[in-house]
Structures are given as C-alpha cells and as structure tokens.
C-alpha cells in the first residue's frame, strides 16, 4: 500500500488538482459514461470481426467508429472527434461499402468469411489482450486524467499546436495524400488499359474527376474499376 501511496503522491505533485479524492477506479459520471460507450464500441468491434454478413460488418464498423468519436468527446478532444466522424464514418466506411459492392460481396451470410486458422487467431488475440491489459492496468493503476478546466483538444488548441509546432509534418502529409491520390488513379487506370482494347479505350475517353478532398483517391478509382470489371 505504501508504494502505491507514494506513487499517488507523486502523481498529485505532478497534477495539482487531481488524484487526492479518488477511490479505486473512482467511478465518476464521466467514467461511467466512458465505460458504457466503451462497452458498446467493443461489442460493435467484436461483431464487426465475427459476423458472416459482409455488409453488416461495415455497418457495425460505423457503430464502433462513432462510439470512438464519443470517447474522444468525453476525453475533451473535440476536434479529433469531429475529424473522426467526418473522415472515418463519412468517407472510409463509404469507401469500404463501395469496395464490398464492387467485389460482388454476397448479401446474405457467406460461409467462408472466416479462414481456417481462426482458432489460432483467437488464441493469439486473447493472449495479446491478456498481456496488454495486465501490463497497462499494472502500469497506470494510480494515474488519473484531469478533465476539469479548459478542454485539452479544442479546435483552438489543436490548431495552434498543429500550425506552430507541426507545420513541416503537416505539409509532408499533404504531399503524401497527393501521392496516394495519384497512386490510386494509376492503379485503376493501368489495369484498365491492359484489360480493355485500345479501340474501346479510345471510344470512351473517360476523364476522372479530380476532387480536392483527401478521400478522393479511391472515389476516383472506383468508377474506372467498375467499368473494367464489367
């Protein structure tokens, strides 16, 4: 008990307002909300990786990602939360649904959604989960997040740190997005040029619409892919 108390005292010294009135697991209101949303998120994630209906997996992924956005809001990181809603729920899941549609995924239950090594995968995942949870709980047993005061992730704070300290990675990331856009277009157009005859390619001089949004590459790639698949 004594080392735990000294660690708590050290934490209290580091964070002046926190860590004195906390009991074990300290079930405050925000923690109960976090726990409930976390259970929903984890359940949706489990259904996502275990269901045999492919479209349902994508729709449960929406629930899991939206639950994570709510968790970000509870952690006062609101800008990240709305970015999560915009990019993941808004575009990534839509792209995944388009992918499922274009690869002619079966609507009902598909019996071969899981491969034969699922028991080995289950063993690995459960062992990794046990090890990670044990280590994490043991390491951060006496650590509390102080959620009072100004939000740690408001748009103002995030924007200031992003454009004051992280400008160079930000610009490099925009170059990477451009490379991904060009790469997706090249991937879909090159395969189309090999599968279709030059006469057919000349007959349909399809110009892919270049959209400035970051989620554009596969949205540009998919119509050409659909043309080629038929």
């Amino acid at each position: 008990m004594t080392p735990a108390l000294t660690t708590a005292a050290a934490t209290a010294a580091a964070t002046p307002t926190a860590a004195d009135g906390h009991g074990f697991l300290s079930p405050s209101g925000v923690e109960i909300a976090f726990l409930l949303v976390g259970l929903v998120t984890l359940g949706a994630a489990l259904v996502t990786v275990t269901t045999r209906q492919l479209v349902h997996a994508a729709l449960w992924l929406v629930v899991a990602l939206g639950g994570l956005a709510v968790e970000y809001l509870l952690l006062t990181a609101e800008f990240i939360a709305w970015v999560q809603v915009l990019i993941y729920v808004g575009s990534v899941v839509v792209l995944l649904l388009f992918g499922l549609m274009l690869t002619k995924a079966p609507i009902g239950r598909s019996p071969d959604a899981d491969s034969g090594n699922r028991w080995a995968a289950l063993t690995v995942a459960v062992a990794a989960a046990a090890a990670l949870v044990w280590v994490v709980v043991d390491a951060f047993r006496t650590t509390w997040i102080d959620l009072d005061g100004a939000a740690a992730g408001s748009t103002r704070v995030t924007g200031a740190s992003l454009f004051r300290n992280w400008v160079l990675p930000f610009e490099a990331l925009s170059v990477l997005l451009l490379a991904a856009l060009v790469g997706a277009i090249v991937l879909s157009r090159k395969a189309k040029a090999t599968t279709t005859a030059p006469a057919a390619a000349a007959a349909t001089p399809e110009t892919p619409a270049t959209s400035p949004s970051p989620a554009a590459p596969a949205a540009d790639g998919t119509p050409g892919a659909k043309e080629g698949a038929r």
Binding site: A45, R118, V124, V126, A129, V136, T143, L147
Partner: peptide
C-alpha cells in the same frame, strides 16, 4: 478519469482488430 479506462479499451480494440486481421 482513471487512465486505465481508455488504455484498457484501446488494448481490447487493438486485439479485436488483430483477431480480425488474422
């Protein structure tokens, strides 16, 4: 908020994704 809540949830989500990948 106890730091263990988000850390444990993140570990469990990661292992769920690991199972799905495998």
């Amino acid at each position: 908020m106890h730091l263990a809540y988000p850390a444990v949830l993140s570990a469990l989500l990661f292992c769920t994704g690991l199972y799905g990948v495998l």
